[in-house]
Design a protein around this nucleic acid. Structure first.
Length: 825
RNA sequence: GCCCGGAUGGUGGAAUUGGUAGACACACGGGACUUAAAAUCCCGAGGACCCGGAAGGGUCCGUGCCGGUUCGAGUCCGGCUCCGGGCACCA
């Protein structure tokens, strides 16, 4: 053993050993409990930096800890390898996306190995591999057969910079999630996955995801946006064949409907407006709305614009004729694209009614002190005919019954969630396995022809459109049905499709008979602990849940939910901003490794705070982590020979008091560290406890007089420290373990166990309070009874000076902790 | 506007069920070692005030703000302030 801690040599050595021994390769083993831990796989964008390392360090602690606990641990890694940056690199630097991606993978794989993350590299996958995406194409065809994948023309989000369509989930505040360009609207044909068919199941499932952070659940529920209400028809005056269908969550307010509104692009508008001058007015209004929606979309308090139509409708509740508008505050994409307006109980309708001088009828009795505008609270119904006297909830039910009885409408649930648009007009993605035949129309590719391989020989210019559209050999195809000339689909799939099932592929990554080998999936799924950034709270995590349910319904897997527990780790922040290449504040992993070693980098990130919080990078914090490892190294080096020579067994009862305290501390630390890792992921406090134990060992060895009898306790303490540090800093822990004459590394060593007997205290420190303020502390033997403790507390010198002859009203005794003496005054 | 979080020393953070607030670490100050520095080791430390020659001892205040429950509140309840995040004419 060297006297100095040389991280690099140690890390190289153990990484080589792990590789040669295939230490982390696993197979299904029904004899052992399984544990599947997974970090969200990265996009191979170039280099990993210390901002990225955090999530892998967290995953590695969990993986290594679970192995020591006797689990058969699946901890795989792969690459989310399709995506735009590869194409951008091709445009900017003339490198083929495949080459760029592969080179990045090679580099990043090496970085992860150098950080000592314990992956089963035999299971590595890259989503751009045809042997990967072929299964996605097969699932696509199955989804097509069941109507879960469909093609339609629709108004979509278009990113002018990425030159492609974006899903709703990929637009953030009107901007592209990736490049932050302003997103515009476009009418385009494209492919959709029918995620709305699973809206209820995805929502209900949220409540069963008890291992997920609440805020992620809240975001998903929010995104799905279920609202219950009713849909019913408004007859149009003078048009006996026309009815306007409206959706409302407040059917109880029907009597307060004083006008109705259609979305400007509502198809009925053209039938209602026949007179040329009104038609012209409508056209002018629509153009205005279109223009304004571009600019004013983000405005705080958007004024509501509307145009009154000559047509009028009937309020079926009151039987009254009411005016009809088209207005920009009603959206075609939600509900029926038409609303009943109730200004008394809806603030938007109230605002609109005020500007257009429309009637306002209150249908809920206001509280006495109420002074607002529209009232949305609960109360007793008024001005509402047969609903009068009911509460809001009761009136809702009654109103729906009434609509149903008269055949006017029915109860109805609406969702904010919309189908997932998966078409991307880009090259570097998985081809959609569909062919357009002049005779047969749209036909899926034959299964035996899968995969539809993305052609390699393309020219990527970046000047609009996918290079696939001009790739003759790819586009021209024979119709799978009639054999006639046909054209291949040139859209590729959203890369979120690949990441919706990669966790399944890891179960049997080379399986050639399907997406996943059934037995492997049954054994490994679901993922026991998933770890990733909060930015995927709705995107990836919602898609993956949906896709898993689809695969279940296709009979391919048995689980309902892919991720049993989720840990959303915080960002790594430096100089007030998220550590990222574009912000120019990255700390390079090899600088940290060269100067301190991978273990130090890992330890710092795990110690600086709990994983779910943001972590502020601190060079001094890194120094501190390094100092701790150096101290541990030196301590081991100094006492090594004595410790190797020392006995491993000793009788705790024969130890003098202070060594028995140390022995107790060892067991207390095991308990704390185990619980902190296992149930809370509070690695920072686990590490702090280990540091305290080392501090105690250091203090103890100063006492020369106890050398003889103390060494076995020190040995037990140090070996416990080294073993428990292994998940955090595996290289130095392995090396120190070996230096203490242990063969075979730490990888197969079991996690230390604490003994309940060893935790028992002989002396208790009891806090004595007077009227809730700490006034003294007494030490008593643990077997002393309560009355004795209380009388000792009352007799304590300091305590007595506060009692000062006052009358003791009562004494509160919390066993083993404190005595609170309550006196008057 | 609605829905989630969060606020604790100079700093990152502890305090898991209401029971000694500030563990552990960073930074800082003092000391030892050294010709000197670095490294290392030891000691100190929430704030204000008081007693004492000193070592030391004591009192009060203190977990964003106001109030409540309780013998006792960082922790529970009500009302705010500020910060972060999500959604947002979704009927």
């Amino acid at each position: 053993m060297e006297d100095r801690y040389r991280a690099k040599a140690i890390e190289d050595k153990w990484q080589r050993i792990w590789e040669e021994n295939r230490t982390f390769q696993v197979t299904e083993n029904p004899g052992k409990p399984k544990y599947y831990v997974l970090e969200m796989f990265p996009y191979p964008s170039g280099r990993i930096h210390m901002g990225h390392v955090r999530v892998y360090a967290i995953g590695d602690v969990i993986a290594r800890f679970r192995r020591m606990k006797g689990y058969n641990v699946l901890h795989p890694m792969g690459w989310d390898a399709f995506g735009l940056p590869a194409e951008n690199a091709a445009i900017e630097r003339g490198i083929h996306p495949a080459k760029w991606t592969t080179e990045n993978i090679v580099y990043m794989r090496d970085q992860l190995k150098k950080m000592g993350i314990s992956y089963d590299w035999d299971r590595e996958i890259a989503t751009c591999d045809p042997e990967y995406y072929r299964w996605e194409q097969l699932v696509f065809i199955r989804m097509l057969e069941r109507g879960l994948a469909y093609r339609k023309r629709s108004t979509v989000n278009w990113c002018p910079s990425c030159q492609t369509v974006l899903a709703n989930e990929q637009v953030e505040g009107g901007r592209c999630w990736r490049c932050e360009s302003e997103v515009s609207k476009r009418d385009i044909d494209g492919w959709f996955f029918k995620i709305t068919a699973y809206a209820d199941e995805l929502l209900d499932g949220c409540d069963r995801l008890t291992g997920w952070p609440e805020r992620v659940i809240a975001m998903q529920k929010n995104w799905i946006g279920r609202s219950e209400g009713a849909e019913f028809d408004l007859p149009v005056v003078g048009y006996p064949d026309l009815k306007i269908r409206v959706f409302t969550t407040r059917p109880d307010t029907g009597f307060g409907m004083t006008y109705a509104v259609l979305a400007p692009e509502h198809p009925l508008v053209d039938q209602l407006v026949t007179e040329p001058s009104e038609q012209a007015e409508v056209e002018r209004f629509r153009a205005e709305v279109l223009k304004q929606s571009e600019q004013e979309r983000v405005a705080e308090d958007r004024p509501k614009h509307g145009l009154r139509l000559s047509a009028r409708v009937i309020n079926p509740f009151s039987g009254r004729e009411i005016p009809l508008f088209i207005a920009d505050y009603v959206l075609m994409i939600y509900g029926t694209g038409a609303i009943m307006a109730v200004p008394g109980e809806d603030q938007r309708d109230w605002d609109f009614a005020k500007t257009h001088e429309l009637d306002i009828i209150e249908t809920v009795n206001r509280p006495a002190e109420w002074s607002g505008e529209a009232f949305t609270g609960d109360g007793i119904k008024i001005n509402s005919g047969f609903l009068n006297g009911l509460t809001v909830a009761g009136a809702k039910r009654r109103a729906i019954d009434w609509l149903v009885e008269r055949g006017l409408g029915e109860a109805r649930v609406n969702y904010r969630l919309r189908d997932w648009g998966i078409s991307r007009q880009r090259y570097w993605g998985a081809p959609i396995p569909v062919i357009y035949c002049n005779a047969c129309g749209m036909v899926p590719e034959r299964e035996e022809n899968l995969p539809v391989v993305l052609p390699h020989d393309v020219q990527i210019s970046g000047k609009g459109g996918s290079p696939l559209t001009t790739h003759a050999a790819f586009v021209s195809a024979a119709c799978p049905r009639c054999g006639g000339p046909a054209r291949r689909e040139t859209d590729t799939m959203d890369t979120f499709v690949e990441s919706s099932w990669y966790f399944l592929r890891y179960c049997s990554p080379r399986f050639e008979g399907g997406i996943v080998e059934r037995d492997a999936a049954v054994y490994w799924m679901p993922v026991d602990q998933y770890i990733g950034g909060i930015e995927h709270a709705v995107l990836h995590l919602l898609y993956a849940r949906f896709y898993t349910k689809v695969l279940r319904d296709l009979g391919l897997v048995k689980v309902d939910e892919p991720f049993n527990a989720l840990l959303s780790q915080g960002m790594v922040v430096k100089d007030g901003a998220k550590m990222s290449k574009s912000k120019g504040n990255v700390v390079s992993d090899d600088v940290i490794r060269d100067k301190y070693g991978a273990d130090t980098g890992r330890l710092f990130e795990l110690f600086a705070g709990p994983p779910e919080k943001d972590l502020e990078w601190s060079d001094q914090g890194v120094e501190g982590a390094y100092r701790f490892l150096t101290r541990l190294w030196r301590f081991t080096f100094q006492h090594r020979e004595a410790l190797i020579a020392a006995r491993s067994d000793f009788s705790p009862n024969d130890l003098p008091g202070d060594l028995r305290n140390l022995y107790r501390l060892i067991h207390r630390t095991i308990k704390k560290v185990t619980e902190d890792i296992e149930s809370r992921f509070h690695f920072n406090t686990a590490i702090a406890a280990i540091m305290e134990l080392l501090n105690a060992l250091s203090a103890s060895v100063q006492d020369e007089s106890k050398r003889e009898i103390g060494t076995p306790v020190i040995k037990a303490g140090l070996e416990t420290i080294i073993t428990m540090l292994y998940p955090f800093v595996p290289h130095i822990a392995s090396e120190l373990w070996e230096s203490l004459d242990h063969r075979g590394g730490l990888d197969a060593v079991t996690w230390p166990q604490y003994s309940e007997a060893a935790l028992e205290e002989e002396q208790l420190l009891i806090v004595v309070q007077v009227n809730g303020k700490v006034r003294g502390k007494i030490t008593v033997s643990a077997d002393v009874d309560q009355t004795r403790i209380e009388s000792e507390a009352l007799q304590d010198q300091k305590v007595r000076s506060f009692l000062d002859g006052k009358k003791v009203q009562k004494v509160i005794h919390v066993p083993r902790r404190l005595v609170n003496i309550v006196v008057e005054g």
